[in-house]
Design a protein around this nucleic acid. Structure first.
Lengths: 122, 122
DNA sequence: CGGCATCCTCTGGGATACTG
DNA sequence: CAGTATCCCAGAGGATGCCG
């Protein structure tokens, strides 16, 4: 099997991994899973995101077709973000990952403790 | 469902995402899937990794219990890296991700083209 | 061979302030 | 409200060289 080329920006795995590895994308998907939200709603639901960073994340996801950005011409402005079918389909693999994470976290943390303890002992 | 807290370093999802999102971890897992390899073998198989960076990656993975590092006392030195059961179990969720990536890459790239074209038009 | 040590660059991410 | 404009920083990632 071809492992892919980490340097080829068009390598499928890289494309997805770059987005998944991003600090906020997964949280945004989680926030929008239950339906469309406005900018501020996403912001407060996630918590701790600087507006600039959230905008970056949302724009990148929009560019990749993971969500749609709908501007309602009214005052005050209202912008809705909603997952596309593509974005929704990503929730499945992500769920696999979080499931794995939850069921193996204990092992991982234990391993870290052991590793660090061994280092301290030296 | 609890979306998790991106600031809690012990949030299961964060722990895994941090490792997955890392540029080399997934490649290393792929390289070791078929059996143990020596440092240089991993290096050449992946291609383009600086030794320092590969070491960092391998150490982090060892710390998390994803692989074992075995030093053979001989000259010249020989160090084998091998996936643990934990590391191997990670290949499943990763496969989900790469599968998703491969089957949706076309959509993503098309979306990007459209997005960028719309920007240029302005 | 399998690394440390060093130095450097780049950019993801953030704090803050301002505006259509 | 929904951003944009600035400035800033830590750290991931990389290039190079030396060593047990």
């Amino acid at each position: 099997m071809d492992r892919g080329n980490a340097f080829d920006p068009d390598c499928p795995t890289r494309v997805v991994l770059d987005r998944i590895g991003d600090k906020w994308t997964v949280l945004v998907i989680g926030a929008l899973e239950d339906g469309p939200l406005r900018f501020t709603e996403v912001r407060t639901r996630i918590g701790g995101v600087a507006p600039k960073v959230l905008t970056q994340t949302l724009r990148a996801m929009e560019r990749d077709g993971l969500l749609t950005r709908t501007v309602h011409a009214q005052v005050p402005p209202r912008v809705d973000y909603e997952l596309t079918a593509l974005g929704t389909s990503l929730t499945a693999p992500i769920a696999m990952l979080t499931d794995w994470a939850e069921s193996h976290l204990t092992q991982i943390l234990a391993s870290r403790e052991g590793y660090d303890a061994a280092l301290d002992a030296r």
